[in-house]
Design a binder for these strands. Structure first.
Lengths: 234, 234
DNA sequence: CGGTACCCGTACATTTCTGTTCAAGTTAGC
DNA sequence: GCTAACTTGAACAGAAATGTACGGGTACCG
Protein backbone atom coordinates (compact mmCIF):
# COMPACT_ATOMS: atom_id res chain seq x y z
CA UNK A 1 0.00 0.00 0.00
CA UNK A 2 2.85 2.33 0.67
CA UNK A 3 4.57 1.56 -2.59
CA UNK A 4 2.83 3.81 -5.03
CA UNK A 5 -0.57 5.24 -4.79
CA UNK A 6 -1.44 5.10 -8.44
CA UNK A 7 -2.87 8.52 -8.14
CA UNK A 8 -0.15 11.11 -8.35
CA UNK A 9 0.82 11.23 -11.94
CA UNK A 10 1.75 14.83 -11.31
CA UNK A 11 -1.12 16.32 -13.17
CA UNK A 12 -0.36 19.81 -14.30
CA UNK A 13 -3.37 21.98 -13.76
CA UNK A 14 -1.81 25.19 -12.63
CA UNK A 15 -3.20 27.14 -15.48
CA UNK A 16 -5.90 25.86 -17.71
CA UNK A 17 -6.01 27.93 -20.87
CA UNK A 18 -9.19 29.82 -21.29
CA UNK A 19 -10.94 28.23 -24.20
CA UNK A 20 -13.49 30.94 -24.74
CA UNK A 21 -11.20 33.83 -25.50
CA UNK A 22 -8.50 33.40 -28.04
CA UNK A 23 -5.02 34.77 -27.56
CA UNK A 24 -4.89 37.46 -30.25
CA UNK A 25 -2.07 39.28 -28.55
CA UNK A 26 -1.42 41.71 -31.40
CA UNK A 27 1.82 39.90 -32.10
CA UNK A 28 3.67 39.61 -35.35
CA UNK A 29 2.57 36.17 -36.53
CA UNK A 30 -1.06 36.97 -35.78
CA UNK A 31 -2.64 33.53 -35.91
CA UNK A 32 -6.16 33.51 -37.12
CA UNK A 33 -8.78 33.59 -34.39
CA UNK A 34 -10.35 30.39 -33.14
CA UNK A 35 -12.95 29.17 -35.52
CA UNK A 36 -16.63 29.02 -34.60
CA UNK A 37 -17.02 25.28 -34.97
CA UNK A 38 -14.08 24.72 -32.68
CA UNK A 39 -15.71 26.73 -29.94
CA UNK A 40 -18.95 24.89 -30.54
CA UNK A 41 -17.18 21.58 -30.17
CA UNK A 42 -15.53 22.62 -26.96
CA UNK A 43 -18.91 23.52 -25.56
CA UNK A 44 -20.38 20.21 -26.68
CA UNK A 45 -17.47 18.34 -25.10
CA UNK A 46 -17.87 20.16 -21.81
CA UNK A 47 -21.60 19.52 -21.80
CA UNK A 48 -21.19 15.85 -22.57
CA UNK A 49 -18.38 15.44 -20.07
CA UNK A 50 -20.47 17.03 -17.35
CA UNK A 51 -23.30 14.59 -17.89
CA UNK A 52 -21.06 11.57 -18.36
CA UNK A 53 -18.92 12.30 -15.34
CA UNK A 54 -21.98 12.69 -13.18
CA UNK A 55 -23.25 9.28 -14.26
CA UNK A 56 -19.91 7.54 -13.94
CA UNK A 57 -16.80 9.19 -12.64
CA UNK A 58 -14.65 6.75 -14.58
CA UNK A 59 -16.05 7.37 -18.02
CA UNK A 60 -13.43 6.97 -20.70
CA UNK A 61 -12.38 9.89 -22.82
CA UNK A 62 -13.61 7.96 -25.83
CA UNK A 63 -17.10 7.73 -24.40
CA UNK A 64 -17.15 11.43 -23.64
CA UNK A 65 -16.08 12.22 -27.17
CA UNK A 66 -18.76 9.97 -28.59
CA UNK A 67 -21.38 11.54 -26.35
CA UNK A 68 -20.28 14.97 -27.52
CA UNK A 69 -20.53 13.90 -31.13
CA UNK A 70 -16.87 14.48 -31.91
CA UNK A 71 -13.91 12.23 -32.49
CA UNK A 72 -11.61 11.25 -29.68
CA UNK A 73 -8.68 12.93 -31.38
CA UNK A 74 -10.60 16.14 -31.69
CA UNK A 75 -11.14 16.08 -27.98
CA UNK A 76 -7.44 15.62 -27.35
CA UNK A 77 -6.88 18.56 -29.64
CA UNK A 78 -8.70 20.78 -27.19
CA UNK A 79 -7.67 19.16 -23.91
CA UNK A 80 -4.20 17.73 -23.71
CA UNK A 81 -5.00 15.27 -20.95
CA UNK A 82 -7.95 13.80 -19.17
CA UNK A 83 -7.12 15.78 -16.07
CA UNK A 84 -7.21 19.01 -18.02
CA UNK A 85 -10.65 18.16 -19.35
CA UNK A 86 -11.96 17.31 -15.90
CA UNK A 87 -10.58 20.54 -14.53
CA UNK A 88 -12.23 22.56 -17.28
CA UNK A 89 -15.53 20.87 -16.55
CA UNK A 90 -15.11 21.62 -12.88
CA UNK A 91 -14.37 25.27 -13.54
CA UNK A 92 -17.47 25.64 -15.64
CA UNK A 93 -19.61 23.83 -13.09
CA UNK A 94 -18.39 25.97 -10.25
CA UNK A 95 -19.01 29.14 -12.19
CA UNK A 96 -22.53 28.10 -12.93
CA UNK A 97 -23.24 26.99 -9.39
CA UNK A 98 -21.71 30.05 -7.85
CA UNK A 99 -23.59 32.41 -10.10
CA UNK A 100 -26.90 30.81 -9.24
CA UNK A 101 -26.17 30.72 -5.55
CA UNK A 102 -25.14 34.34 -5.53
CA UNK A 103 -28.40 35.40 -7.11
CA UNK A 104 -30.28 34.47 -3.94
CA UNK A 105 -31.25 37.44 -1.87
CA UNK A 106 -29.87 36.94 1.59
CA UNK A 107 -31.75 39.93 2.93
CA UNK A 108 -34.98 38.06 2.56
CA UNK A 109 -36.65 36.17 5.30
CA UNK A 110 -34.23 33.26 5.89
CA UNK A 111 -36.90 30.64 5.33
CA UNK A 112 -37.82 32.36 2.09
CA UNK A 113 -34.18 32.62 1.10
CA UNK A 114 -33.66 28.92 1.77
CA UNK A 115 -36.66 28.03 -0.33
CA UNK A 116 -35.44 30.27 -3.09
CA UNK A 117 -31.95 28.85 -3.01
CA UNK A 118 -33.03 25.25 -2.99
CA UNK A 119 -35.66 25.63 -5.66
CA UNK A 120 -33.45 27.53 -8.04
CA UNK A 121 -30.30 25.56 -7.61
CA UNK A 122 -30.72 22.02 -6.37
CA UNK A 123 -30.08 20.67 -9.81
CA UNK A 124 -27.06 22.79 -10.42
CA UNK A 125 -25.61 22.07 -7.02
CA UNK A 126 -26.07 18.40 -7.64
CA UNK A 127 -24.38 18.70 -11.00
CA UNK A 128 -21.48 20.40 -9.31
CA UNK A 129 -21.30 17.67 -6.72
CA UNK A 130 -21.18 14.98 -9.36
CA UNK A 131 -18.38 16.67 -11.22
CA UNK A 132 -16.52 17.34 -8.01
CA UNK A 133 -16.77 13.71 -7.05
CA UNK A 134 -15.35 12.73 -10.40
CA UNK A 135 -12.59 15.26 -10.08
CA UNK A 136 -11.56 13.99 -6.69
CA UNK A 137 -9.67 11.13 -8.28
CA UNK A 138 -7.34 13.04 -10.51
CA UNK A 139 -7.06 16.58 -9.27
CA UNK A 140 -4.87 17.65 -6.37
CA UNK A 141 -6.67 17.87 -3.01
CA UNK A 142 -6.03 21.56 -2.50
CA UNK A 143 -7.84 22.33 -5.71
CA UNK A 144 -10.76 20.19 -4.60
CA UNK A 145 -10.99 21.89 -1.25
CA UNK A 146 -10.83 25.27 -2.90
CA UNK A 147 -13.77 24.83 -5.24
CA UNK A 148 -15.64 22.88 -2.62
CA UNK A 149 -15.54 25.72 -0.16
CA UNK A 150 -16.39 28.25 -2.79
CA UNK A 151 -19.75 26.57 -3.36
CA UNK A 152 -20.45 25.76 0.25
CA UNK A 153 -19.78 29.25 1.52
CA UNK A 154 -22.96 30.88 0.25
CA UNK A 155 -25.01 28.10 1.79
CA UNK A 156 -23.18 28.54 5.06
CA UNK A 157 -23.79 32.27 4.90
CA UNK A 158 -27.47 31.75 4.38
CA UNK A 159 -27.70 29.40 7.35
CA UNK A 160 -25.66 31.69 9.52
CA UNK A 161 -27.92 34.54 8.58
CA UNK A 162 -31.06 32.61 9.41
CA UNK A 163 -29.63 31.50 12.69
CA UNK A 164 -28.77 35.02 13.76
CA UNK A 165 -32.28 36.05 12.81
CA UNK A 166 -33.56 33.49 15.25
CA UNK A 167 -35.34 31.50 12.60
CA UNK A 168 -32.97 28.58 12.30
CA UNK A 169 -31.93 26.39 15.17
CA UNK A 170 -28.89 27.16 17.23
CA UNK A 171 -28.13 23.77 18.75
CA UNK A 172 -26.30 22.29 15.78
CA UNK A 173 -23.14 23.56 14.12
CA UNK A 174 -23.48 25.43 10.87
CA UNK A 175 -21.15 23.03 9.14
CA UNK A 176 -23.49 20.16 9.91
CA UNK A 177 -26.48 22.06 8.60
CA UNK A 178 -24.57 22.78 5.42
CA UNK A 179 -23.85 19.08 5.12
CA UNK A 180 -27.52 18.32 5.61
CA UNK A 181 -28.57 20.72 2.89
CA UNK A 182 -26.03 19.53 0.34
CA UNK A 183 -26.63 15.92 1.17
CA UNK A 184 -30.37 16.15 0.72
CA UNK A 185 -30.06 17.99 -2.57
CA UNK A 186 -27.79 15.25 -3.72
CA UNK A 187 -30.15 12.54 -2.52
CA UNK A 188 -33.12 14.16 -4.23
CA UNK A 189 -31.26 14.32 -7.51
CA UNK A 190 -30.24 10.70 -7.18
CA UNK A 191 -33.80 9.62 -6.47
CA UNK A 192 -34.99 11.56 -9.48
CA UNK A 193 -32.38 9.83 -11.60
CA UNK A 194 -33.47 6.43 -10.35
CA UNK A 195 -37.13 7.14 -10.94
CA UNK A 196 -37.97 6.98 -7.26
CA UNK A 197 -38.98 10.61 -7.19
CA UNK A 198 -40.78 12.88 -9.60
CA UNK A 199 -38.63 15.79 -10.62
CA UNK A 200 -41.60 18.11 -10.13
CA UNK A 201 -41.86 17.12 -6.47
CA UNK A 202 -38.21 17.33 -5.61
CA UNK A 203 -37.94 21.04 -4.85
CA UNK A 204 -41.02 21.09 -2.69
CA UNK A 205 -39.95 18.04 -0.70
CA UNK A 206 -36.52 19.51 -0.25
CA UNK A 207 -37.76 22.82 1.02
CA UNK A 208 -40.27 21.23 3.37
CA UNK A 209 -37.73 18.82 4.80
CA UNK A 210 -34.94 21.33 5.16
CA UNK A 211 -37.15 23.91 6.81
CA UNK A 212 -38.27 21.34 9.34
CA UNK A 213 -34.72 20.22 9.97
CA UNK A 214 -33.40 23.77 10.34
CA UNK A 215 -36.16 25.08 12.51
CA UNK A 216 -35.74 24.73 16.23
CA UNK A 217 -37.89 21.86 17.41
CA UNK A 218 -40.31 23.85 19.50
CA UNK A 219 -43.69 22.17 19.05
CA UNK A 220 -43.41 20.74 22.54
CA UNK A 221 -46.55 21.81 24.41
CA UNK A 222 -45.57 24.54 26.78
CA UNK A 223 -42.39 25.69 25.10
CA UNK A 224 -42.62 29.14 23.62
CA UNK A 225 -42.01 29.33 19.92
CA UNK A 226 -39.46 31.89 18.84
CA UNK A 227 -41.59 34.51 17.17
CA UNK A 228 -40.33 36.03 14.01
CA UNK A 229 -39.83 39.71 13.92
CA UNK A 230 -42.82 41.23 12.12
CA UNK A 231 -40.60 43.30 9.90
CA UNK A 232 -42.05 42.78 6.48
CA UNK A 233 -39.47 44.69 4.53
CA UNK A 234 -40.90 43.84 1.18
CA UNK B 1 -6.45 4.80 -16.45
CA UNK B 2 -7.95 2.52 -13.93
CA UNK B 3 -11.29 1.43 -15.02
CA UNK B 4 -13.06 -1.67 -14.10
CA UNK B 5 -15.16 -0.88 -17.09
CA UNK B 6 -18.45 -2.56 -17.46
CA UNK B 7 -17.34 -5.13 -19.92
CA UNK B 8 -18.61 -8.29 -18.29
CA UNK B 9 -22.23 -7.31 -17.96
CA UNK B 10 -23.60 -10.75 -17.19
CA UNK B 11 -21.72 -11.80 -14.13
CA UNK B 12 -22.85 -15.06 -12.69
CA UNK B 13 -23.82 -14.54 -9.09
CA UNK B 14 -26.69 -16.95 -8.73
CA UNK B 15 -24.97 -19.00 -6.13
CA UNK B 16 -21.98 -17.81 -4.27
CA UNK B 17 -20.40 -20.71 -2.43
CA UNK B 18 -20.54 -20.37 1.30
CA UNK B 19 -16.98 -19.86 2.35
CA UNK B 20 -17.50 -20.36 6.02
CA UNK B 21 -18.71 -23.90 5.96
CA UNK B 22 -16.68 -26.40 4.02
CA UNK B 23 -18.20 -29.11 1.92
CA UNK B 24 -17.36 -32.27 3.89
CA UNK B 25 -20.58 -33.91 2.86
CA UNK B 26 -19.80 -37.46 3.94
CA UNK B 27 -18.67 -38.22 0.41
CA UNK B 28 -16.47 -41.04 -0.75
CA UNK B 29 -13.28 -39.15 -1.56
CA UNK B 30 -13.41 -37.50 1.82
CA UNK B 31 -11.51 -34.31 1.16
CA UNK B 32 -10.00 -32.94 4.27
CA UNK B 33 -11.92 -30.10 5.84
CA UNK B 34 -11.00 -26.49 5.05
CA UNK B 35 -8.02 -25.50 7.04
CA UNK B 36 -8.14 -22.86 9.74
CA UNK B 37 -5.70 -20.46 8.11
CA UNK B 38 -7.70 -20.55 4.92
CA UNK B 39 -10.81 -19.45 6.72
CA UNK B 40 -8.82 -16.77 8.51
CA UNK B 41 -7.54 -15.48 5.21
CA UNK B 42 -11.01 -15.37 3.72
CA UNK B 43 -12.14 -13.28 6.66
CA UNK B 44 -9.16 -10.96 6.31
CA UNK B 45 -9.85 -10.56 2.62
CA UNK B 46 -13.50 -9.73 3.19
CA UNK B 47 -12.59 -7.22 5.88
CA UNK B 48 -9.98 -5.54 3.73
CA UNK B 49 -12.21 -5.53 0.69
CA UNK B 50 -15.00 -3.90 2.65
CA UNK B 51 -12.79 -1.07 3.75
CA UNK B 52 -11.04 -0.66 0.42
CA UNK B 53 -14.24 -0.69 -1.59
CA UNK B 54 -15.76 1.92 0.64
CA UNK B 55 -12.81 4.19 0.08
CA UNK B 56 -12.53 3.60 -3.62
CA UNK B 57 -15.01 1.53 -5.58
CA UNK B 58 -12.39 0.88 -8.22
CA UNK B 59 -9.72 -0.53 -6.01
CA UNK B 60 -7.71 -3.24 -7.72
CA UNK B 61 -7.76 -6.84 -6.59
CA UNK B 62 -4.05 -6.57 -5.99
CA UNK B 63 -4.55 -3.69 -3.57
CA UNK B 64 -7.22 -5.59 -1.69
CA UNK B 65 -4.95 -8.60 -1.38
CA UNK B 66 -2.13 -6.44 -0.12
CA UNK B 67 -4.41 -4.77 2.39
CA UNK B 68 -5.53 -8.17 3.58
CA UNK B 69 -1.96 -9.30 3.98
CA UNK B 70 -2.19 -12.12 1.46
CA UNK B 71 -0.94 -12.68 -2.05
CA UNK B 72 -3.05 -11.86 -5.02
CA UNK B 73 -3.05 -15.49 -6.13
CA UNK B 74 -4.31 -16.59 -2.76
CA UNK B 75 -7.22 -14.24 -3.15
CA UNK B 76 -8.03 -15.70 -6.53
CA UNK B 77 -7.91 -19.11 -4.91
CA UNK B 78 -10.89 -18.15 -2.76
CA UNK B 79 -12.79 -15.95 -5.17
CA UNK B 80 -12.67 -16.88 -8.82
CA UNK B 81 -13.43 -13.41 -10.09
CA UNK B 82 -13.60 -9.87 -8.85
CA UNK B 83 -17.37 -9.93 -9.14
CA UNK B 84 -17.57 -12.95 -6.91
CA UNK B 85 -15.50 -11.20 -4.28
CA UNK B 86 -17.63 -8.09 -4.41
CA UNK B 87 -20.75 -10.17 -4.12
CA UNK B 88 -19.40 -12.00 -1.09
CA UNK B 89 -18.56 -8.68 0.53
CA UNK B 90 -22.03 -7.43 -0.23
CA UNK B 91 -23.65 -10.52 1.26
CA UNK B 92 -21.70 -10.13 4.46
CA UNK B 93 -22.46 -6.43 4.68
CA UNK B 94 -26.14 -6.95 4.19
CA UNK B 95 -26.26 -9.67 6.79
CA UNK B 96 -24.58 -7.43 9.29
CA UNK B 97 -26.75 -4.45 8.49
CA UNK B 98 -29.94 -6.43 8.50
CA UNK B 99 -29.17 -8.08 11.81
CA UNK B 100 -28.51 -4.74 13.45
CA UNK B 101 -31.59 -3.14 11.96
CA UNK B 102 -33.77 -6.02 13.05
CA UNK B 103 -32.65 -5.69 16.63
CA UNK B 104 -34.46 -2.37 16.94
CA UNK B 105 -37.69 -2.63 18.83
CA UNK B 106 -40.42 -1.24 16.63
CA UNK B 107 -42.94 -1.39 19.44
CA UNK B 108 -41.14 1.43 21.20
CA UNK B 109 -42.09 5.03 20.91
CA UNK B 110 -41.29 5.85 17.28
CA UNK B 111 -38.97 8.68 18.21
CA UNK B 112 -37.18 6.40 20.60
CA UNK B 113 -37.01 3.66 17.98
CA UNK B 114 -35.56 6.08 15.46
CA UNK B 115 -32.91 7.21 17.91
CA UNK B 116 -32.09 3.62 18.73
CA UNK B 117 -31.82 2.63 15.10
CA UNK B 118 -29.69 5.54 14.06
CA UNK B 119 -27.37 5.36 17.03
CA UNK B 120 -26.77 1.66 16.78
CA UNK B 121 -26.44 1.37 13.05
CA UNK B 122 -25.42 4.51 11.25
CA UNK B 123 -21.94 3.19 10.80
CA UNK B 124 -23.04 -0.19 9.58
CA UNK B 125 -25.61 1.26 7.26
CA UNK B 126 -22.98 3.51 5.83
CA UNK B 127 -20.63 0.59 5.36
CA UNK B 128 -23.37 -1.20 3.51
CA UNK B 129 -23.99 1.80 1.34
CA UNK B 130 -20.34 2.02 0.41
CA UNK B 131 -20.17 -1.59 -0.59
CA UNK B 132 -23.42 -1.34 -2.47
CA UNK B 133 -22.14 1.62 -4.39
CA UNK B 134 -19.06 -0.33 -5.37
CA UNK B 135 -21.14 -3.33 -6.33
CA UNK B 136 -23.35 -1.26 -8.61
CA UNK B 137 -20.76 -1.37 -11.35
CA UNK B 138 -20.33 -5.08 -11.71
CA UNK B 139 -23.38 -6.81 -10.32
CA UNK B 140 -26.65 -7.13 -12.22
CA UNK B 141 -29.25 -4.49 -11.36
CA UNK B 142 -31.81 -6.93 -10.02
CA UNK B 143 -29.37 -8.13 -7.40
CA UNK B 144 -28.64 -4.54 -6.42
CA UNK B 145 -32.30 -3.73 -6.08
CA UNK B 146 -32.85 -6.86 -4.03
CA UNK B 147 -30.28 -6.18 -1.36
CA UNK B 148 -31.06 -2.49 -1.47
CA UNK B 149 -34.68 -3.05 -0.58
CA UNK B 150 -33.80 -5.58 2.05
CA UNK B 151 -31.93 -2.93 4.02
CA UNK B 152 -34.35 -0.11 3.32
CA UNK B 153 -37.43 -2.05 4.33
CA UNK B 154 -36.85 -1.96 8.10
CA UNK B 155 -36.28 1.77 7.93
CA UNK B 156 -39.46 2.20 5.93
CA UNK B 157 -41.32 0.06 8.44
CA UNK B 158 -40.13 2.22 11.30
CA UNK B 159 -41.18 5.38 9.56
CA UNK B 160 -44.53 3.94 8.60
CA UNK B 161 -45.08 2.91 12.17
CA UNK B 162 -44.24 6.32 13.54
CA UNK B 163 -46.46 7.95 11.00
CA UNK B 164 -49.43 5.81 11.91
CA UNK B 165 -48.79 6.61 15.55
CA UNK B 166 -49.19 10.25 14.67
CA UNK B 167 -45.65 11.11 15.69
CA UNK B 168 -44.08 11.51 12.27
CA UNK B 169 -45.32 13.83 9.61
CA UNK B 170 -47.83 12.73 7.05
CA UNK B 171 -47.29 15.25 4.30
CA UNK B 172 -44.27 13.58 2.71
CA UNK B 173 -44.09 10.13 1.17
CA UNK B 174 -42.43 7.41 3.18
CA UNK B 175 -39.99 6.71 0.39
CA UNK B 176 -38.68 10.25 0.62
CA UNK B 177 -38.26 10.05 4.37
CA UNK B 178 -36.32 6.83 3.92
CA UNK B 179 -34.10 8.60 1.46
CA UNK B 180 -33.59 11.41 3.93
CA UNK B 181 -32.57 9.02 6.69
CA UNK B 182 -30.16 7.00 4.57
CA UNK B 183 -28.74 10.08 2.94
CA UNK B 184 -27.98 11.80 6.23
CA UNK B 185 -26.36 8.71 7.70
CA UNK B 186 -24.18 8.58 4.66
CA UNK B 187 -23.33 12.25 4.88
CA UNK B 188 -22.44 11.97 8.54
CA UNK B 189 -20.10 9.08 7.86
CA UNK B 190 -18.50 10.99 5.03
CA UNK B 191 -17.98 14.05 7.19
CA UNK B 192 -16.43 11.90 9.88
CA UNK B 193 -14.10 10.39 7.31
CA UNK B 194 -13.06 13.83 6.12
CA UNK B 195 -12.49 15.14 9.61
CA UNK B 196 -15.27 17.69 9.35
CA UNK B 197 -17.24 15.99 12.10
CA UNK B 198 -16.29 14.29 15.32
CA UNK B 199 -17.37 10.67 15.37
CA UNK B 200 -18.69 11.12 18.89
CA UNK B 201 -21.08 13.85 17.75
CA UNK B 202 -22.41 12.09 14.69
CA UNK B 203 -25.13 9.98 16.26
CA UNK B 204 -26.51 12.83 18.31
CA UNK B 205 -26.56 15.22 15.36
CA UNK B 206 -28.23 12.60 13.24
CA UNK B 207 -30.97 11.86 15.74
CA UNK B 208 -31.63 15.52 16.38
CA UNK B 209 -31.81 16.39 12.72
CA UNK B 210 -33.90 13.41 11.68
CA UNK B 211 -36.40 13.89 14.46
CA UNK B 212 -36.86 17.50 13.46
CA UNK B 213 -37.21 16.55 9.82
CA UNK B 214 -39.70 13.77 10.51
CA UNK B 215 -41.84 15.71 12.92
CA UNK B 216 -44.45 17.91 11.35
CA UNK B 217 -43.54 21.49 12.16
CA UNK B 218 -45.95 23.70 13.94
CA UNK B 219 -47.70 25.96 11.42
CA UNK B 220 -45.85 29.19 11.01
CA UNK B 221 -48.05 32.18 11.62
CA UNK B 222 -49.07 33.90 8.47
CA UNK B 223 -47.77 31.43 5.94
CA UNK B 224 -50.16 29.02 4.34
CA UNK B 225 -49.37 25.36 4.87
CA UNK B 226 -47.76 23.58 2.00
CA UNK B 227 -50.21 21.62 -0.03
CA UNK B 228 -50.37 17.94 0.77
CA UNK B 229 -48.92 15.97 -2.04
CA UNK B 230 -51.69 14.05 -3.73
CA UNK B 231 -49.18 11.55 -4.98
CA UNK B 232 -49.26 8.03 -3.69
CA UNK B 233 -46.21 7.18 -1.65
CA UNK B 234 -45.10 4.15 -3.60
C1' DC C 1 -12.24 31.39 -53.68
C1' DG C 2 -8.19 30.12 -51.54
C1' DG C 3 -5.63 29.11 -47.38
C1' DT C 4 -5.72 27.12 -43.21
C1' DA C 5 -7.62 25.96 -39.06
C1' DC C 6 -10.02 22.18 -37.82
C1' DC C 7 -12.04 17.39 -37.93
C1' DC C 8 -11.46 12.46 -37.87
C1' DG C 9 -10.15 7.48 -38.77
C1' DT C 10 -6.35 4.33 -38.39
C1' DA C 11 -2.66 2.89 -36.15
C1' DC C 12 0.69 2.47 -32.47
C1' DA C 13 3.17 2.63 -27.92
C1' DT C 14 2.44 2.36 -23.05
C1' DT C 15 0.29 1.32 -18.86
C1' DT C 16 -2.76 -1.07 -15.76
C1' DC C 17 -5.73 -4.44 -14.41
C1' DT C 18 -7.77 -9.15 -14.64
C1' DG C 19 -7.52 -13.96 -14.53
C1' DT C 20 -4.62 -18.36 -15.39
C1' DT C 21 -0.69 -21.48 -15.11
C1' DC C 22 3.38 -23.42 -13.05
C1' DA C 23 6.40 -24.89 -9.82
C1' DA C 24 7.87 -24.43 -5.89
C1' DG C 25 7.65 -23.60 -0.49
C1' DT C 26 4.91 -23.73 4.03
C1' DT C 27 1.69 -25.10 7.49
C1' DA C 28 -2.13 -27.23 9.66
C1' DG C 29 -3.94 -31.40 11.34
C1' DC C 30 -4.41 -36.39 11.84
C1' DG D 1 6.06 -36.79 10.81
C1' DC D 2 3.48 -37.29 6.75
C1' DT D 3 0.24 -35.58 3.65
C1' DA D 4 -2.88 -32.75 1.73
C1' DA D 5 -4.36 -28.24 1.93
C1' DC D 6 -2.75 -23.91 1.48
C1' DT D 7 0.22 -20.03 0.09
C1' DT D 8 3.22 -17.63 -3.02
C1' DG D 9 6.07 -15.22 -6.65
C1' DA D 10 6.98 -15.08 -11.44
C1' DA D 11 5.28 -14.94 -15.62
C1' DC D 12 1.80 -14.73 -19.45
C1' DA D 13 -2.26 -13.56 -22.33
C1' DG D 14 -6.11 -10.55 -23.06
C1' DA D 15 -8.72 -6.40 -22.52
C1' DA D 16 -9.17 -1.61 -22.08
C1' DA D 17 -7.67 3.13 -21.46
C1' DT D 18 -4.48 7.02 -22.23
C1' DG D 19 -1.78 9.75 -25.31
C1' DT D 20 0.74 10.39 -29.80
C1' DA D 21 1.58 10.41 -34.87
C1' DC D 22 0.21 10.56 -39.63
C1' DG D 23 -2.53 11.94 -43.46
C1' DG D 24 -6.49 12.88 -46.00
C1' DG D 25 -10.64 15.40 -45.91
C1' DT D 26 -13.95 19.42 -44.62
C1' DA D 27 -15.69 23.86 -43.79
C1' DC D 28 -14.88 28.24 -41.86
C1' DC D 29 -13.26 32.93 -42.51
C1' DG D 30 -11.11 36.60 -44.76
Amino acid sequence: MRERSVRERSVRVESVPDHSTAAASTGSARPRAQRADARRNVEAILDAATQCLRRDADVSVADIATAAGVGRITLYGHFKTRAELVDAVLVRAIESAHATLDSVDLADDPAQALASLVTSSWRIVEQFRGVLHAAQRELPPERIRDVHDRVLDPVAALIEHGRQAGVFRDDLPTSWLVTVAMSLMHAAAEDVDNGRLEAADAASYLVTTLLAAFTAPAPRPGSPRPERSPRSSR
